[in-house]
Write a protein that binds this DNA or RNA. Structure first.
Length: 111
DNA sequence: GCAATGACGCTCT
DNA sequence: CAGAGCGCCATTG
């Protein structure tokens, strides 16, 4: 079996940059959040922040990746209504947001 | 194979 | 202090 039912959802390659991002995001424990830039730095390139966001946008609805734990440096950068939804999900994880609309730094997860 | 896109981040004006 | 533009580079059509 060479093909082994690839194309689970959106990835055709067995392991692409997205896979790494998904793995890192999945490693975020509940009650913690991270930023695109942070993930990008872990990947080895701080400029990959855009790629990280793109990967999140490509996530299917039934994904097991806690994408809601990933926010922009200034807080939730998703457009309506995704941003509001994400904020709601984080609120359920007891993640508090400052007046700036961004979670406290103590909630930021460090890889 | 080429061109356009994009859930960001930083610098400059 | 606020706003706009550029870069970066994999994914998609």
């Amino acid at each position: 079996m060479k093909k082994r039912a690839i194309q689970e959802k959106t990835e055709s390659k067995p392991e692409g940059l997205f896979a790494k991002i998904y793995r890192l995001v999945s490693a975020i424990p509940p009650g913690k959040v991270t930023t695109y830039g942070t993930i990008a730095r872990v990947l080895g390139n701080p400029r990959l922040s855009r790629r990280v966001g793109f990967a999140m946008a490509s996530l299917p609805q039934g994904t097991t990746v806690p994408w809601h734990r990933v926010v922009g440096k200034n807080g939730i950068s998703l457009p309506w209504p995704y941003g509001a939804k994400q904020k709601s999900l984080l609120a359920k994880e007891k993640v508090r947001f400052g007046k700036d609309g961004r979670p406290l730094e103590k909630y930021f997860y460090q890889f």
